[in-house]
């Protein structure tokens, strides 16, 4: 599972980085972002691509874990 640091990235870069990560390793990815818009976009993209999404909030940062069901 690849780790992606998408903090501070403008829309839609966090989603592009996530997509590229699961292209390389389809088992899943762990993505750290720091704004609500990126959380929504990655979650929507991941569910559309057939992944489950778990979110852990740490201050202003959110780590999203994408796994295959």
């Amino acid at each position: 599972m690849k780790k992606v640091d998408a903090r501070g990235c403008a829309c839609p870069e966090p989603v592009v980085l996530t997509r590229n990560a699961i292209k390389e390793d389809p088992s899943g990815a762990e993505v750290t972002v720091d704004n609500a818009c990126a959380v929504e976009n990655i979650s929507r993209f991941a569910r559309n691509a057939g992944y489950q999404v778990a979110a852990i909030k740490n201050g202003s940062e959110v780590t999203l874990t994408l796994t295959k069901p």
Binding site: C11, P12, V15, V16, R19, C37, N41, R44, N48
Partner: peptide, 19 residues
């Protein structure tokens, strides 16, 4: 809602996401 004209077409092209 993050409404955006450019984002609409972009997401459709990038991720086939109609949102």
């Amino acid at each position: 809602s993050r409404f955006c004209m450019a984002g609409g077409i972009r997401d459709q092209m990038l991720f086939t996401d109609f949102h």
